[in-house]
C-alpha cells in the first residue's frame, strides 16, 4: 500500500507526508492560499484551516444527519425495515445510555449524545480505510491538477487535535453554561472554592478543583486524539517499514482497531453525558 510513495520517498518523508494536513490559510505576506510545504503551513499559525480533516468531518457529520433524517422520515412504527431497525438500534443504544447516565430533564442531551457518538464513530472508522487509498488518489490529483509536490490529505478527522478539542471545548462550554444555570454563578464558583475542604482552605481547594475542571475537556479531547493518532501512526509505520509483510500486520492491527474505534466514540459520549449530568446537579 505504500509502494506508490515509497519509491521516491524515504520512510520518514512518507510518514511526515501522511501526518501533514492540507492547509489553507494566511501566508506571512498577508495573502490567503494553500500551504505547499509543511513549513509554509507552520508559518500560517492560527490563521489557517485544515481543509482535509475539516472537510471529512463536515462530510461525515452531514452524511450521518441527513441519512438519519431520511430514514427517520420514512420510519414506520408498525413495519420497520432492516435499515430502520439498524438506525433505531443505534438510537435506542444512545437513548438508554442517556436515560441511565443523565438524571435530569434536558431534551438537548439525547441529540447531543447521538451526534457525538455517531459522528465520532464515523470519523474514527476512517482510520480503517487503508492509509494510501484516498490519500494516494488525492496526492495524484493534487500533483497533476493543482501543481502540488506531495499534497497531504488526511482522512481521519479525529487524528487532528483541532477536531477533537473543538468538540471537547464545546462540551466544556456547555458544562460551564449548565453549571451556572443550575447552580448560579455563586454556586458554581463556590463549588470550586469551598470543596472539598471548606472555606478555610480556599486556595488549596482552588488548586484542586480548577485543574479538575480544566482537565475534563483536555482529557476528553486528547484521549480521543491520542488513541486515533497512535492507531494511524502505527498503520503508517507498518505501511512504511514492512514491505510485503505489511498485509498480515495491517490486518492484525485493524482487527484490534475495530475495538478502539467504537470504544473511543462510546467513551467520549459517556463522559459527555456524565459531565453534563454533574453540571446539572444543583446540590453537590
Amino acid at each position: 500500500m505504500a509502494e506508490a510513495g515509497a519509491e521516491s520517498q524515504t520512510v520518514q518523508e512518507y510518514i511526515v507526508h501522511h501526518l501533514s494536513y492540507l492547509t489553507y490559510g494566511r501566508h506571512p505576506d498577508g495573502h490567503w492560499g494553500f500551504a505547499h510545504t509543511p513549513e509554509e503551513a507552520a508559518e500560517m499559525g492560527f490563521m489557517a484551516i485544515h481543509v482535509d480533516t475539516m472537510g471529512w468531518s463536515l462530510a461525515l457529520g452531514g452524511a450521518f444527519l441527513l441519512w438519519f433524517r431520511y430514514i427517520g422520515l420514512r420510519a414506520s412504527a408498525d413495519n420497520p425495515g432492516a435499515i430502520q431497525n439498524f438506525v433505531e438500534s443505534i438510537f435506542e443504544f444512545v437513548d438508554n445510555r442517556v436515560t441511565e447516565g443523565f438524571l435530569h430533564k434536558n431534551s438537548l442531551i439525547g441529540p447531543l449524545a447521538l451526534t457525538v457518538f455517531v459522528w465520532i464513530l464515523l470519523m474514527n472508522t476512517m482510520d480503517l480505510v487503508p492509509v494510501d487509498w484516498i490519500t494516494g488518489i488525492a496526492a495524484l490529483i493534487g500533483e497533476h491538477v493543482f501543481g502540488f509536490d506531495h499534497m497531504p490529505f488526511k482522512i481521519v478527522p479525529t487524528t487532528d487535535p483541532n477536531i477533537t478539542m473543538g468538540m471537547s471545548l464545546s462540551i466544556f462550554a456547555l458544562i460551564i453554561w449548565y453549571s451556572i444555570k443550575h447552580k448560579g454563578l455563586g454556586g458554581f464558583l463556590g463549588e470550586l472554592a469551598f470543596h472539598p475542604f471548606g472555606k478555610w482552605m480556599v486556595p488549596f481547594n482552588l488548586m484542586i478543583e480548577i485543574p479538575t475542571l480544566i482537565a475534563k475537556p483536555i482529557s476528553l479531547g486528547l484521549r480521543l486524539f491520542g488513541n486515533l493518532y497512535a492507531g494511524e501512526l502505527l498503520f503508517l509505520l507498518i505501511a512504511g517499514l514492512l514491505g510485503i509483510w505489511q498485509l498480515p500486520a495491517h490486518f492484525a492491527w485493524a482487527v484490534f482497531h475495530l475495538l478502539v474505534v467504537p470504544l473511543q466514540a462510546f467513551v467520549f459520549m459517556m463522559l459527555t453525558i456524565v459531565y453534563l449530568n454533574a453540571a446539572h446537579d444543583a446540590a453537590h
Binding site: 507552520a42 490563521m47 468531518s57 431534551s107 483541532n162
Partner: peptide, 22 residues
Amino acid sequence: MDINLTIIGQSVAFAIFCWFCH
C-alpha cells in the same frame, strides 16, 4: 500540535449538527 481555525470550524459545525439533530 498546530491548533488553528479548524478548532473553531469544528466547534461551529458541532453546534449546528447538534441543533439539527435535536
